[in-house]
Design a protein around this nucleic acid. Structure first.
Lengths: 212, 212
DNA sequence: CCTACCGATCGGTAGG
DNA sequence: CCTACCGATCGGTAGG
């Protein structure tokens, strides 16, 4: 333990962030009061300020912590030696699982990033762009023609739409859960990719095909 | 024009709602002040209260107005006599266009509905459920096997994920726009559906297939 | 002197 | 329709 600092200082910090993330996710960052956070943590408000400089520091920690975790998970998965479809499948599965384990932080990241200052927001967005780039790379590996049609980016974003939207409609206790949905997303994307590439290619470059 | 009321009362109301929707979409409903709305409308704050009882009334009007419009658009499209794939395609295309024409109201509907009182929120959600049901019906018409596999609902929600998420990443002035994306979404879904149905059917009822 | 807090209240600003 | 305000509550911090 660090000198002069309680052994469970970091543990308490993490516990506070988890509670704050839940409240921010439910009510939004601006309309969540520090009194609510304090009450949810069974701490006094001054005690809260012992662990965080201000409310804004909590927002930065939640958003950046989550996106860092996602970035690390994606990098680790991309580093594996797997065939393209297996890698994309694993990427999606792990991503959905990470969302499931951090639903509150996920909603804060997608809805409250706009309340970050320009420099902090840019740092978070930089991580997000790296994650998106890896997904696009994994998609192109499955279907190399994607790269020529400039469809990799939009298809990646449609894929993110499916999984980012998932936890807005999944009922916690329902028969359908994220474990069951991940393979459905994989099959829908891998199954639909050929049709999209075929249609788009035939539409955009009919003359070049005629010349060849 | 109604007696005793200015001829452009309703027009002014709509103009105010449009400005308020933009501010709510940018900053969120709770952190948008009535002073900001008044300034954006070039009106005094008391003038604002001539058109709306309170800030909450604006939120209800924006959210309910938008979902009513979507519901009407879906009903009108479902009533057309078209072959299944053409109808689903038109449904998606019109829906994406409606979003494009009301991006602010769309974001308010998806992010600020949680700030509605229970009865108002329930009314909005009832319209959303009707819209979802129509999309599910249009999907099942394209691929009847969907109905047996209980995949219609989750696939419908994955489809909504793609189009609801679209305007969070589309750049207004970019090369890629919603007109180009709608057919890509259609092709991805129609192209991927068979693969999803095939995989899911073979996974869930192998024994029943063996018996038959 | 340090940390880890508590009860009480600060200056400003929100919706109305 | 404006200036001038209210009751309530915000994020943040004082002394002990």
């Amino acid at each position: 333990m660090a000198r002069g600092r309680a052994a469970d200082y970091d543990l308490t910090r993490e516990a506070i962030l988890a509670r704050a993330a839940e409240l921010f996710a439910q009510q939004g960052y601006p309309s969540t009061s520090m009194n609510q956070v304090a009450q949810a943590c069974a701490l006094s408000k001054p005690a809260l300020y012992h662990y965080f400089r201000d409310k804004y520091a909590m927002l930065v920690n939640i958003a950046e912590g989550h996106v860092l975790q996602l970035h690390a998970l994606v990098d680790a998965t991309m580093a594996l030696e797997l065939e393209p479809k297996a890698k994309l499948s694993l990427l999606i599965t792990r991503f959905v699982e990470a969302y499931a384990d951090a639903q509150a932080a996920h909603r804060v990241l997608t809805e409250d990033t706009r309340f970050l200052q320009a420099d902090d927001r840019e740092r978070v967005l930089a991580h997000e762009r790296r994650v998106v780039a890896s997904f696009a790379q994994a998609l192109v590996a499955c279907h190399p023609e994607l790269d020529e049609t400039q469809l990799a980016k939009p298809l990646t974003m449609l894929l993110f739409g499916m999984i980012n939207w998932m936890f807005t409609w999944l009922k916690p206790g329902g028969a359908l859960n994220h474990e069951a949905l991940a393979p459905i997303v994989v099959d829908l994307v891998l199954g639909g990719l050929p049709a999209v590439v075929r249609k788009h290619t035939s539409m955009t470059s009919p003359s070049s095909l005629q010349k060849a």
